[in-house]
Design a binder for these strands. Sequence first.
DNA 1: TTGTAGGCGTTATCAG
DNA 2: CTGATAACGCCTACAA
Lengths: 333, 333
Amino acid sequence: MATIYEVSELAGVSLATVSRVMNKNAKVRDKTRIKVEVAMKELGYRPNAIAQSLASSRSNSIGILVSELHGPFFGQMMAGIESELRAAGKHVIITTGHSEEDKEKDGIEFLIGRSCDALIIHVEAVSDEYLIELSKGKTPIFLISRHVEALSENCISLDDELGGYLATKKLVEQGHKNIAYISGPQFKADASNRLIGHKRALAEHDIQFYEDSLYIGDFKETGGNEGLKHFIDKKLSFSAVVCANDEMASGAMKCAREHGFELPEQLSIMGYDNIIFTNYLYPKLTTIDNPINEMGHMAAKLVLKNVYQKKLEIKHIFEPSLISRNSVTSFQQ
Amino acid sequence: MATIYEVSELAGVSLATVSRVMNKNAKVRDKTRIKVEVAMKELGYRPNAIAQSLASSRSNSIGILVSELHGPFFGQMMAGIESELRAAGKHVIITTGHSEEDKEKDGIEFLIGRSCDALIIHVEAVSDEYLIELSKGKTPIFLISRHVEALSENCISLDDELGGYLATKKLVEQGHKNIAYISGPQFKADASNRLIGHKRALAEHDIQFYEDSLYIGDFKETGGNEGLKHFIDKKLSFSAVVCANDEMASGAMKCAREHGFELPEQLSIMGYDNIIFTNYLYPKLTTIDNPINEMGHMAAKLVLKNVYQKKLEIKHIFEPSLISRNSVTSFQQ
DNA sequence: TTGTAGGCGTTATCAG
DNA sequence: CTGATAACGCCTACAA
């Protein structure tokens, strides 16, 4: 690979000049610029990004940490971030945390070690304190889908309490009184906030919340499956179930059908996230829209604004909304 | 951030010694090693990966190029690659090509510019010749889900012709004779190979292939939707449709239901890929299993073997298999 | 086993 | 506007 040095020699100028034409900022006489550009073309020169980073201590790349690489939720999130950033000429370096504290920390350190200009992270296992400490470091950190009060300027999050509220409210308004709830792991903030919203909706309508109608799932299809099976085995009486995410809802739906439920007549099912395939389930899933793709875009804009001085409007908190489809119907005696 | 220089000073040894204890290869007396390790701990030292890369021209990171970040197919693929590589202490840098020639080339150059030790790429728009030329470069290139004869040692691919054959064979065996086919874009090798397999199965059973029963979709839900609608509008008579991937199958399924078809009694639908949510469709989708997650693992092993000298067994060509579920039934008059 | 010194490809600070 | 020259943080012969 040709180096800047060979280019300078061929063009008959100094290293510094070549560097200047690459970075377009400093003034260079047109005539010399052209000499250099011709030389670059002739040698098929491509700057070495690693060397640039080392010398300038900035990499034009931002690190992304997600829990998993698969799954529709993270897919949409990454896609949102990447397309926004790419349009701005930045690149992403993606790694995973698997919702485990050690791995999340490990991933963050890896990203910082690669001298990313900033990090956009989706972390679930790590504590608020750790994040606050981290934010004192040199690398700017931005959180997506998590709200930490002390860092609120660096967060893009969803009002999950509201989402949980809307989900259950809809069911109550349809006449349901016995509503089961399949939650996500409680250490995850989104899961616990959704549950809080659920309880608020119940309370507001004078419906008692029972621990027996709560199952803690894993946010995966299996969790929905097991949750519904749990309720059935316990002979719980319920006409509706809200699942804290769509994957669990699809698991619950499958389990319900296997147990002979007519859907939605004998059981209303509410999801959460509005991931792409909910529209292809049968019946189509009624769910809460989680605009994670837009949030990804916004997180990227936040980086562009704070790290690269672009002028952009930032919205820190997104509001979920109800998507009415066919998996919820009014309570039928 | 502390540098190797500060560590060496604190430990009272030279730069080189510190470097040695980091890289664990050269011999260092236990006593000195411990001095160094203590110093590193005290300073919270973390090596600067960028500087390491520049000096050693190797980065312990491999570049991954996928078409899209979202979508179940790429999710499974990335997850497979990443978990294998991470277990070996390597990291991935992911970027996208969006199935467009320019962007694919751009992504590849970005990755090479970041001095990745190797690339695992899923490219669709770029030509075989380009790839062959690319492989002469310094950075080892490995292809996933694409077979280029001249580069077969560097490919991990699926026998798509066989998959297409199996799909249609199943339908024929169930008594179907009028089989519509919704293909993917023909410039994509997997799409065209699947179609070839389809034709072979037909020919083998003396069934004529008609251009009218072929629709070229986009590999997305919309393509399936539009494809089925196209056939219906054209008043094509058919009892089964094979879709070249599951996303189109789900689109076709939705469209069919909207047009009043009883599934699967009035229309059998065959998918391809066996992506995760096919199991949650109703009826559950009969499809061809594409072991893309395993292929991701294998691609990673190929890198580990060829670039990092691990001893591993490599399987270059994977075979698809039929997954019988409920969306296909025997032909009913 | 340990230390010295040159180099990896750029950027950035000074002079000129 | 352009050219030396010193970083950037680490690796790696080569010496000792």
